[in-house]
Nucleic acid binder design. Structure first.
Lengths: 241, 241
DNA sequence: CGAGAGGTTGAGCAATCTCAACGGGGGTGG
DNA sequence: CCACCCCCGTTGAGATTGCTCAACCTCTCG
């Protein structure tokens, strides 16, 4: 607990937590900080866990805290009053969330799988940000990437067919998991989540996956494991240049 | 030209350019910098103009420069190979664009109206950013807002009906122009641009606007001027809480 | 073994798209 | 100065993608 662990094991996780909460992506965050900064950064965080399905925060709530995901997957979404839902992203270990510069969260966040995260009081985090320009630069880079991803998703939602959406989605997941062509991809999220991410219904997602399976573009093992025999072929379907 | 103008007149525009290039939104950028910083910032910029329809840069080109829009409107868009287009945003005076942390632009930018902008070499701007933490914080705030707007747009594209999309769009424009309920809104962009922004066809945009006019939700003066007699009513149509 | 949740498949439907015709305004050339 | 053309926007009719509603299946958990 109080003993002086090597810095890397305490990063992003709070000093009292073991190193199994940090993975390779965490290191990317921490590479921009020196030892002393890492220590202060860690000291500012507490940790939290969520079971799958539990909500971290709701859109509209006061944005008092921000989080760094260290394990598992979280989905972000927005709702219309009648319950229609749009999932705006799936976060994995190493991602930040809740950094609202306004007063309230602009989306809801819910655990897809069991999740561990680091929790920062908003004011504390903003102070750290001022003290550590490298961290701020890193966050700006992250925001910039997220924005690019959001624009890619707008293209998908506004202009792609159901088949193109699914192909794009599978390729994105495959690249994120850094698997080779022969290794399968794990979806982790439900059909309902996929549908709400791609702007479709669960029936259309199901049907489209079945069609792609029949065409040989993918193979399914259970509902969650997907083999992509030929990524280039899928890329063609996805409508990517 | 070389004379020492008051600082505010030179901001974001390059020292050699008159103050009519700056509007209230520019001041928001500059409020975070002190006099000396403003001077250096201005000195780093050159200016450019574009006619309506001219392209500033294309997606995929090396991102060597970044820009600050001082007058007019620019649209950002992405294309699929077969020509389907998604407009991801309309920028107005005070907005930044082209700040890519990757090597290439991730979208194309084209003038909607005649446009003036300040141009920064990428490397120069990044250096300024390092020297001026306030500027970096400001950019992070902007990126954060843009991200929130992008997520709102994903909700629109993924889950809203044509009528809801148009209502949302008109309200957003109205709020951006800060007009009262009785003042009309100027669209500036073509039906084709609106369609590609909302993930619809021009025919659907046209039909939906006509229907809304028949219902009394809006009134049209020409193709570009829109009166919104009751924003609250439009907000109900838009499906906003 | 029954119940419930999540997923698949089918049939019909509806919102939106496609294709096509038409109209008005502005610029241009005779 | 006027006729023409072209671009943009509107409207109509039919086609189509994806949605809705419903049945059924499978797996898990009590």
């Amino acid at each position: 607990m109080g003993q002086s662990d090597p810095v890397m094991t305490t990063v992003c996780c709070g000093a009292q937590v073991a190193c199994d909460q940090c993975d390779a992506r965490d290191l990317a965050v921490c590479a921009v900080l020196d030892e002393d900064e890492l220590r202060r950064f860690s000291a500012a965080a507490t940790t939290a866990r969520l079971e799958a399905g539990q909500t971290l925060f709701h859109e509209g709530e006061p944005a008092d805290e921000m989080f760094s995901l260290t394990e598992g997957m979280i989905k972000l979404y927005k709702l219309l009053q009648d319950g229609r839902r749009q999932i705006t992203g799936f976060l994995v270990a190493g991602d930040f969330l809740g950094l609202a510069f306004g007063r309230t969260y602009v989306y809801s966040a819910e655990a897809v799988t069991p999740v561990r995260l680091c929790r920062f009081r908003r004011a504390v985090f903003l102070r750290l940000l001022e003290e550590m320009p490298h961290l701020e630069r890193n966050l700006l880079g992250r925001a910039s990437s997220e924005l690019a991803a959001a624009q890619e998703q707008m293209l998908l939602l506004g202009r792609k067919t159901a088949r193109e959406r699914l192909a794009t989605f599978l390729l994105t997941i495959a690249e994120r998991q850094r698997r080779t062509d022969s290794e399968p991809v794990d979806l982790l999220m439900s059909r309902s989540d996929i549908a709400d991410y791609l702007g479709l219904t669960i029936e259309t997602v199901s049907r489209t996956l079945s069609t792609m399976r029949r065409l040989g573009a993918i193979a399914l093992d259970g509902t969650s494991r997907v083999y992509i025999p030929d990524r280039e072929a899928l890329r063609t379907i996805a409508g990517v240049g």
